[in-house]
Nucleic acid binder design. Structure first.
Lengths: 139, 139
DNA sequence: GGTATATAGTTAGTTAGGCTAACTAATTAA
DNA sequence: TTAATTAGTTAGCCTAACTAACTATATACC
């Protein structure tokens, strides 16, 4: 097997165990990892329109609608008027801001344990490799 | 954001685009990436029981049943008697062996292009990082 | 200005790819 | 010989996406 195949093999193999682990931690907040990914995006980069979110997360608009609906129900995000009457911006509520911080702290030890024994340098390299692939794929 | 969070963020972000890319390539063979993962396991490591497959792929037994059913339909794998009357082993058919080789060749350029601009050394490091996380999570 | 086209978001229905619970058949331990 | 364990299956559920087709608003073209 080539090293490319080996990489993608390992990549795929890790996905389910990882998502399951995160989902267990998020259960406490009635969240799933997809919703958590959106909360993190809003926290890191501020309010976004539905289309922007779709582009950032590499998912389709209807998927964004559902994610946002659920997070609105939970009171973690809200929508406000955008640049014209069509556009809506999604942003964190005050409660959402708090919850994101809390979850981040809650997840930290789990993430650290998952990466136990891996040097910071190697984590950074792996992150960069994946970012490069993302860029290559979504060109 | 910590480097751990950054890594997992990137990791998750790449998943769908990658799987979609692979699935498009596999469409030609009426396969999805999950089925392809199983074919590759059988190719690399020979016949396995259902329980072994579940353990190797980190999925549950019923999921294995469905994967195998589909691959049997396609004529790529077959089941044979195992060590006792309960156990069944899954193995590639002659046709399956051929198809795996063909698909591997077909996927190669796509995989190489996805990893364009990434050094072999970094790919290996990234693979090792992910393997370590897998080991940490599934302990 | 009026019509065609494009854009933002929604709704409805489908899919991949998992899961758990509960089952049967065969095996092993008490 | 009876109870517990193990291998695989069936049925039904769930997440997290997808496409197609829709409404409402905005822009471009003649």
């Amino acid at each position: 097997m080539t090293i490319e195949q080996e990489f993608f093999n390992q990549y795929r193999l890790m996905y389910r165990p990882f998502i399951n682990l995160v989902n267990v931690q998020l259960g406490k907040y009635q969240l799933y990892s997809s919703q958590w990914a959106l909360l993190r995006l809003l926290k890191d980069k501020g309010p976004h329109s539905f289309v922007d979110i779709a582009n950032f997360m590499f998912i389709e608009k209807p998927s964004v609608t559902r994610l946002v609906q659920k997070l609105v129900e939970l009171g973690y995000v809200e929508t406000v008027a955008g640049r014209d009457k069509r556009e809506k911006l999604v942003q964190l509520t005050a409660n959402g801001e708090e919850i994101v911080q809390e979850i981040q702290a809650h997840l930290k030890p789990t993430m650290e344990q998952a990466l136990a024994g891996v040097s910071e340098r190697d984590i950074e390299i792996a992150t960069q490799v994946i970012a490069n692939i993302c860029a290559n794929i979504n060109r």
